[in-house]
Amino acid sequence: MQLDPEGMAPEDLSHAGAVIDKAIEYMLEQNIASISIASALLGGALGLLSRTLDDRAVAGILRSALRSVESGELRAMRQAPPPGASVPG
């Protein structure tokens, strides 16, 4: 796994994110409830992490996610227009 030049994220993270975005878009078009999509994605992510990392590393990732929620990062995402939406201007 190659890291980006700053060493912060795998170089294929953007590609993986784009694939997930398309999968979410497809499931929404199939009228699958957002909570069901999110729960399935979270369960799948935890399953993948548990197969590739030890419990301590998984817990660290979950703590980082919790800090993002507590700091308001997710609130900012809720207030942003959805990807692909036209922004007046």
Rank of each mutant, 00 (worst) to 15 (best):
M1P: 05
M1T: 06
Q2M: 10
L3T: 11
L3A: 11
P5Q: 04
E6T: 06
G7V: 13
M8F: 13
A9N: 01
P10M: 11
P10Q: 03
L13E: 07
L13W: 06
S14K: 10
H15G: 05
G17W: 06
A18V: 03
V19D: 07
V19Q: 07
I20S: 01
D21N: 05
D21E: 14
E25V: 00
M27T: 01
N31I: 00
N31F: 07
I32M: 08
S34H: 07
S36H: 04
I37K: 03
A38N: 12
A38M: 09
A40L: 13
G43L: 08
L46D: 09
L49V: 07
R51K: 04
T52G: 05
T52N: 04
T52Y: 09
L53D: 01
L53A: 11
L53K: 07
D54I: 12
D54Y: 11
A57Q: 10
V58W: 02
A59I: 10
G60N: 09
I61Q: 09
I61Y: 14
I61M: 13
L62I: 14
S64I: 05
S64E: 07
S64L: 14
A65W: 07
R67Y: 07
V69H: 09
V69T: 00
E70H: 04
G72E: 11
G72W: 11
G72Y: 09
E73G: 02
E73K: 07
R75E: 12
A76R: 13
R78S: 01
A80R: 15
P82R: 06
P83Q: 06
P83E: 05
V87N: 05
P88M: 04
